[in-house]
Nucleic acid binder design. Structure first.
Length: 653
RNA sequence: GCCACCCUAGCUCAACUGGUAGAGCGACGCUUUCGUAAAGCGUAGGUUGUGGGUUCAAUUCCCAUGGGUGGCUCCA
């Protein structure tokens, strides 16, 4: 009899009692080990095993010595196994309910899992209850799940028998020497890498969320499949909580709040073109003032370039060949013009307009650049994807040796701004796309510069291969919206192609012309998209410096106290505090509620006491009733809160 | 652009299997003059997104079209 020795790093108490490893018969499965009750861990609470740090199924025989651990539900690995198996469970239910279905892929994702199906029946949300009921039934049947491994030829036969032509396509792309594993639970068998739980009874809590179309292999020329998004957790309580959090998040949706707070609107007359209402414009302007200060400190100068420029320019810049599908065109005096989708060509014309010396570099030209891009109608989404938006754009012309320090400076600005709002962000490096301009050498150089800047900044990042702009690679800074969707906001791009196309040059210390490098950069990205994230993060209750209505003055009696209320109101306006005055007659409770619901930063209640003592009774949106204080005291505190651009009230409760 | 779904008053939503539209909030008017989350009464708002069709009859069924939502592709 061959034996193996297993160590259990997940159970330090064993070692405390002097046991380093335990001997077992070779071929024992993790499940059998568990059932020897060496640890206080029931098999029912284990989803999979971990052998030498590789997650495996519980019923896989162990043939050699090594480290054995167990995957429990409330761990990232456990959740992943649970959800992956739940995807199979859902597919199994679809097979039972709808019979004639072909399976594509069913991976886990950040918040759950999905499975792509090809079938004639069109899924409707009404089907969800049906499918969930079938899933529950399969769970109650507690069907064993088993893994089978085949050669490629055998696997091919299996898939042919299943008429799984999508999976067959994937199979043919793999080498002969791979292991082709199938997982079977009752009448459902799926080609899958695994691992999975060992029986369906371990899948306790799940919920189908939405149905969506998706192209096979993400290719718009291929078949459109039906995708069901769903989620699963170890317990029903966690599913309920997940659903609750999603419902709460929907209340913060910027499209809903934008309407409620009269920030902006969309009209059928201009799909994808936002209309900014007065309150929304206040938000935009405050953001711009804030950014202008930072730009000044970092030695940027501001330019404005025209909205419409002729076709010759766009041909020169490469947009005509690489971006035409997204552009709007017009004719002026029989000549073809385009509405700018980017600000860079205009900036290049400004650079080229004078002879530039190496002493002028880096030349940092900022522009609040309003750009129009023709987006496909299906992608439009509130302020997050629009057809006209304002970039806090800048183009920095510098010498090659200045690239890294310039990018470093940009990353510091970005940090400063995102921290100001307490946003956390993720970074991606997007590399050369298939359809691009410039030589290999230039691209390597540009990508290298971005990588070095990231490393200097000690930033975590992922690489998006082939996702760069047509003229250069880019860093993308992503923020998340209230529903967990990630949006690219800030971006930093290295461009060595555009300066060449525009034949840009500066005079070096050697009195010779040299080619500058051009850096494109936006910190907020687009004001529209950034504002949508702001709205959702603050749930519409903006910090005072951003709030469209900062103070509302409410006289208790519109007959007896309106005069003094008006004095208060006018003093606030003198200090450039955005105050309004309530002149109608409504109950105080009503006005307080309105003020809270409309998320006004401060409500000042004016009654008899305030009038006689030259005071105001202050209610903060954030903290509630702050009691009375002198008008001067309030003005001083409010002014300081606004000037410091604080996220929170400066008053003490 | 593709797949699915949705569209009723300014907003949020009702109206059983087709019988021809109703509430709350808001707005407006009158009464009330109030001490920290909704005072009372009344009035005006809709060719049910638009256009066609089926039917004695369409908000309801069918077709087309516009806009939106969730995704996919694409992107700040």
């Amino acid at each position: 009899m061959t034996t193996i020795r297993l160590r259990f790093p997940g159970f330090p108490q064993l070692r405390v009692s002097g046991v380093d490893s335990i001997e077992f018969e070779a071929g024992i499965t993790p499940e059998e080990v568990l059932n020897q009750h060496l640890f206080d861990l029931p098999e029912a609470e284990v989803l999979a095993a971990k052998f030498n740090n590789k997650i495996i199924d519980l019923y896989v025989p162990l043939k050699e010595s090594g480290d054995l651990d167990f995957v429990r539900p409330n761990t990232p690995e456990g959740l992943d196994v649970l959800r992956h198996s739940s995807a199979h469970l859902m597919a199994h239910a679809v097979l039972r309910v709808f019979k004639d279905v072909e399976f594509a892929i069913g991976p886990t994702i950040e918040e759950g899992f999905y499975y792509d199906f090809d079938l004639d029946h069109k899924f409707a949300p009404e089907d969800f209850a049906l499918l969930e009921a079938e899933m529950k039934k399969i769970v109650e049947e507690n069907i064993p799940i088993r893994r089978f491994e085949y050669s490629k030829a055998e696997a091919r036969e299996m898939l042919k028998k299943q008429r799984a032509h999508f999976k067959l396509e994937l199979l043919e792309e793999l080498g002969e020497n791979n292991v082709f594993s199938f997982y079977q639970q009752g009448d459902f068998t799926d080609w899958c890498r695994g691992p999975h739980v060992n029986r369906t009874g371990k899948l306790k809590a799940f919920k189908l969320l939405s149905v969506a179309g998706s192209y096979w292999r993400g290719d718009e020329r291929r078949e459109m499949l039906q995708r069901i998004y769903a989620t699963a957790f170890p317990s029903q309580e966690e599913v309920d909580k997940f659903v609750y959090v999603r419902e709460e998040a929907k209340k913060r949706d910027h499209r809903k709040l934008g309407k409620e707070l009269a920030l902006f609107s969309f009209q059928p007359e201009g799909p994808g073109f936002p209309f900014w209402h007065p309150a929304g414009v206040t938000l935009l302007k405050e953001l711009q003032h804030y950014l202008d200060g930072i730009l000044f400190q970092h030695d940027y100068q501001e330019v404005i370039t025209p909205m419409v420029l002729n076709q010759v320019l766009w041909q020169k810049s490469g947009h005509w060949d690489h971006y035409r599908a997204n552009m709007y065109f017009t004719k002026v005096d029989e000549e073809d013009f385009a509405v700018k989708p980017m600000n860079c060509p205009g900036a290049c014309l400004i650079f080229r307009n004078e002879t530039r010396s190496f002493r002028d570099l880096p030349l940092r030209l900022a522009e609040w650049g309003r750009v129009h891009r023709h987006e496909k109608k299906g992608v439009l989404s509130g302020l997050q994807r629009v057809r006209v938006f304002t970039q806090d754009d800048a183009h920095v012309y510098c010498m090659p040796e200045q690239i890294e320090s310039e990018i470093g400076d940009m990353m510091r600005m970005l940090d400063e701004i995102y921290k100001k709002f307490e946003f956390s962000y993720s970074i991606a490096l997007s590399t050369r796309p298939p359809n691009s301009i410039g030589s290999d050498e230039i691209w390597q150089h540009a990508e290298g510069a971005l990588k070095r800047a990231l490393e200097n900044h000690k930033a975590d990042y992922k690489i998006n291969p082939g996702e760069g702009a047509f003229y250069g690679p880019k860093l993308e800074f992503h923020l998340k919206d209230c529903l967990g969707r990630s949006w690219q906001c800030g971006t930093i791009q290295v461009d060595m192609a555009m300066p060449e196309r525009f034949d840009l040059a500066y005079v070096g210390s050697d009195n010779q012309p040299h080619r500058p490098v051009m850096l494109h950069r936006a910190l907020l990205g687009s004001l529209e998209r950034f504002t949508s994230i702001l709205i959702e993060n603050f749930g519409g209750a903006f910090p005072m410096w951003l709030a469209p209505e900062q103070v509302r003055v409410i006289p208790i009696s519109s007959e007896k106290h309106l005069d003094y209320a008006r004095v208060v109101y006018e003093k606030l306006r003198e200090q450039c505090i955005r105050a309004t005055l309530v002149t109608r007659s409504q109950s105080l409770n009503y006005e307080i509620r309105q003020g809270q619901v409309q998320k006004v930063s401060y409500l000042l209640v004016i009654g008899e006491r305030e009038k006689t003592n030259n005071q105001v009774a202050v209610r903060s949106h954030e903290m509630g009733d702050l009691k009375a204080m002198s008008l001067d005291q309030f003005i001083a505190g409010a002014g300081a809160e606004i000037r410091s651009r604080s996220l929170h009230s400066g008053f003490k409760k």
